[in-house]
């Protein structure tokens, strides 16, 4: 057993992970616990953050919002043990006007540069996720994983010393709003499968990472407060105003709620849900069967 654990640790130690996120909060809330666990095992994690989150704040101009969220997203990534953050800087909420090919190729560059064993990307097929930047980012990242393997996609990369790369494993993450997210859409050979990962051991780090995103969190709290006020309701948590501690508590409720929702009907107490394309994905059965034998 000890030898197995040592072997597993050594394997993880050299593992490279690339996380693609549309915005600062999505990957933290959906995959933060799992990423913290990988980082603890020694994985080298790189984050590509596609938009600059310039829209979501209280009484701040877009430029100031973007600057603050950039710093806060680096702090959040640090909490999770992410080694490097790359900010692509697209304007938030405007990916619908960006060329999907351009976005794909920018992500593909980082696939070839960091040569990940595993990628985490937003699930573009998750339904009722209202932030469509996550859909566009997911589509581009999924495609980037494929095109990164082919030398005729952006052959100029080869001149710069970037060779094609195959990413062996892929996790799709999304907020648990799709009512049918746990229904497998087909066999694992063809379709990524719903999986649940235990995050009890890294929950606290995930929470700290989420709380580090103070600008976005204040905006979320203010929006909830406004909605309740406008409809003659109140949240006792906000009775002393939207204080730092009240907002931090709201974030804690959110992260706890998400972890409990994802752990529902599983053996875990706190969890995250994914769709996982593992080693068998898109490998014809006759080959995967032979490999297993």
């Amino acid at each position: 057993m000890k030898i197995f654990l040592l072997f597993a640790t050594v394997c993880l130690w050299n593992q490279s992970v690339l996380v693609v996120t549309a915005d600062a909060s999505d990957y933290v809330l959906c995959a933060g616990g799992t990423l913290a666990k990988l980082a603890s095992g020694g994985a080298q994690i790189t984050l590509v953050r596609v938009t600059n989150d310039d829209k979501d704040s209280v009484n701040l101009l877009p430029e100031e919002t973007a600057n603050r969220v950039r710093q806060e997203s680096e702090a959040a990534a640090k909490e999770l043990g992410i080694a490097k953050v790359i900010h692509l800087g697209y304007r938030a909420g405007e990916l619908g006007g960006v060329s999907p090919t351009e976005l794909r190729d920018r992500i593909m560059f980082y696939v070839r540069l960091t040569k990940p064993d595993v990628m985490f990307i937003p699930n573009p097929y998750a339904e009722y996720v209202e932030v469509l930047d996550r859909h566009y980012t997911g589509m581009a990242a999924e495609e980037a994983r494929r095109t990164a393997t082919m030398p005729n996609h952006q052959p100029a990369h080869a001149i710069a010393g970037l060779s094609p790369h195959i990413v062996k494993e892929l996790y799709y993450y999304s907020a648990p709003v799709d009512p049918r997210r746990r229904e497998p859409e087909g066999p694992a050979q063809f379709v990524p499968q719903p999986v649940v990962r235990d995050i009890a051991g890294t929950f606290t780090r995930k929470l700290r990472a989420a709380q580090a995103l103070t600008t976005i969190n204040q905006a979320m709290a203010a929006a909830i407060h406004r909605r309740l006020e406008d409809t003659g309701r109140r949240l006792p948590l906000f009775d002393r105003g939207l204080t730092e501690s009240a907002v931090a508590k709201l974030v804690e409720e959110n992260v706890r709620g998400l972890a409990a929702l994802c752990a529902k009907d599983t053996q875990f107490r706190q969890a995250e849900e994914f769709h996982h394309a593992g080693p068998d994905y898109q490998v014809p059965l006759r080959y995967s069967g032979a490999a297993k034998r």
């Binding site: 809330l29 009722y128 209202e130 907020a175 648990p176 709003v177 979320m220 909830i224 309740l228 006020e229 003659g232 309701r233 109140r234 949240l235 006792p236 948590l237 709201l250 409720e253 959110n254 992260v255 706890r256 709620g257 998400l258 972890a259 929702l261």
Partner: peptide, 17 residues
């Protein structure tokens, strides 16, 4: 619905003014 982690907390904790 867009805040799945908070939905049940908000439903339980909100009060009429």
């Amino acid at each position: 619905d867009h805040l799945p982690g908070l939905k049940s907390y908000l439903e339980k904790s909100q009060l009429k003014k």
